[in-house]
Amino acid sequence: MPKTYAYYPGCSSMGTSAEYDRSTRAVCRACGIDLEDVHDWTCCGSTPAHVTDFGLSGALAARNLVQAKSAGRSEVLTPCPSCLKNMKAAQHHAHDPVWGPRIERLLGRKVPEDMRCASVLEILFRETGAEGVRALVKKPLTGLKVACYYGCLLTRPTALMEFDEPENPQSMETLLAATGATVLDFPLKVECCGASLAVVRRDMVQQLSGRLLDTACELGADVLSVACPLCQMNLDLRQKQAACRRQTKAAVPIMYVTQLLGLAFGLDEADLGLGGLIVDPRPVLAGIGARSEEAADAPAGGQDDAKAVNSGRAE
């Protein structure tokens, strides 16, 4: 019986990153990864909490671990790296002489130590892997040039996240290469996009995300693949704002890695929330569609896999 993960959508899933939430659910379903929402989940505190007080941050994040544990789950999956980092930090700080007791007091109970936490990228990489992706591909992304952008927190801090290489991670490239896409060597893959400074210091985010967009354009990327709601928002929603700091003006679609995988699996575009993207990816994807149809005669997966996907959905 496959393991069921406690799923923590995070607050942005209710608004700005609804399409990440949708595509994560759709892709996990396709991969046979069973998700069960954390009951009555609440905000992890995000950046504002941990810049205010590690105790407050720890307690807010840990409440969700308590919820997941009481539902009998042993591992939490979340699409958002910032939520993930806060949950892992809560567990880490639980052992700190200054913050541990404070978290416990604010939370009113112990922080569950045995709960594992992982990003959707990590779970897909670990559970499905390149082989699994290859087997599920219905519409190869052949010819699509993708720059993979991880942002700050997926791999850092190293001791906390314990995932991939901090400076030159390869997991996203590995998964997307298995869809037939051409993955580019994007040198700024772990550079910061400006994160939550966007509201207050728009100038800083323009500078940082402008540089990311320019570099992707110079490399000839058709699309930038991301795995963080905040990165996606800064690069997509604020792409127009950043235009004033850019050397090139070309629009770059910013897609969640789950959306790209879902497309390759032949999932319904509505299930992947492609309509929610500000920079419309459909023009670049249209070209791929034509190419992939030619390649569809010899798909990587085959009939059996298609059945597996369907039956997976039926469940």
Partner: peptide, 11 residues
């Protein structure tokens, strides 16, 4: 205050 807590320095 302008630090985005991106962890690059820590790594």
């Amino acid at each position: 205050w302008l630090c985005a807590a991106c962890q690059a320095c820590a790594v």
